[in-house]
Design a protein around this nucleic acid. Structure first.
Lengths: 153, 153
DNA sequence: CTTTTTGCAAATGATTTGCATTAAC
DNA sequence: GTTAATGCAAATCATTTGCAAAAAG
């Protein structure tokens, strides 16, 4: 009953994600804890954008004691480790993005729905202008705002 | 003592700004009120980025009764009228930009200092991708994040 | 005079903080 | 055993809301 495809089963994937996070945590002197493993698994299994509150609700089943404070602290840590990316929503509040490679976003200004954009955007001259202004640029993204298909109707 | 340059004196500028706002308000059926005139003057005289709270503090001298609620409502109205532009800060909270023409921003991820970037950014392909995803794009800006000169030291 | 706008105070929502307890190492 | 991380509750911060009083048209 066990096929080679088992290496991508939920348990196998979790094991692999756990190993990856554990290595990153230890290399920085952080401890490996259950809340961190769970948040990390959840975030990286679900590719997309998520709100801390949402994450809190979804993990309540697996670890009821998990508190909002820990969610926030853990997401910040994962951001520092490069596993998620903190994105400021134009509607206030914070969105965490499980994708950390360069890409862009459109956000519905009515419902807040956010979607990735794969389009290439040349930000070299903007980065140069920022450098000229004394900024050490860390990253950048294009944020488009508009009305999504659902809200349009 | 009165030179032609008087047309740009504070009183003259205010009068002109007031006329401009009044026309826009009336054309949309809104009323012309002192809080609106004061906020509008303040925002447009001070070219730059400002936080509602900051604005509230700065206008306290001119109109002590001005409440935060009115500041927020007025800024939203000015945004709807096209006199300011609401910008979501990646650090949470809302920034209002007195510039409404297309331009971009760098924001210090330590102190929140924000600065305009004049660099041309081609967002056509991103807009096309957003349209393909069902979005009616309204506007867009590039947001760079980094460390400003002050925080670097 | 009628309706909008204001100011105030209270409510809300998101995020942070302080601190004792628990768990990692 | 030490020290860091957690959970909880309370605090904070930005923003919104409800409503009676004031101002605009």
């Amino acid at each position: 009953m066990t096929s080679p495809a088992n290496s991508t089963s939920m348990e196998g994937l979790n094991r692999e994600l756990d190993r990856e996070l554990s290595a990153a945590l230890r290399s920085r002197g952080h401890r490996v804890t259950l809340p961190r493993l769970l948040v990390h698994r959840h975030v990286r299994r679900r590719d997309g954008h998520l709100l801390p509150e949402q994450l809190h609700a979804e993990l309540a089943a697996e670890l009821p004691s998990l508190s909002p404070a820990t969610i926030y602290a853990t997401l910040d840590l994962l951001d520092a480790l490069g596993f998620v990316r903190r994105v400021g929503s134009p509607r206030g509040g914070t969105i965490y993005d499980s994708r950390t490679d360069p890409h862009h976003h459109v956000i519905c200004r009515l419902c807040g729905h956010i979607q990735d954009l794969e389009a290439p955007v040349d930000m070299v001259s903007a980065e140069r202008a920022a450098a000229a202004a004394g900024f050490a640029v860390h990253r950048g993204e294009l944020q488009l705002s508009g009305i999504c298909a659902t809200c349009a109707s």
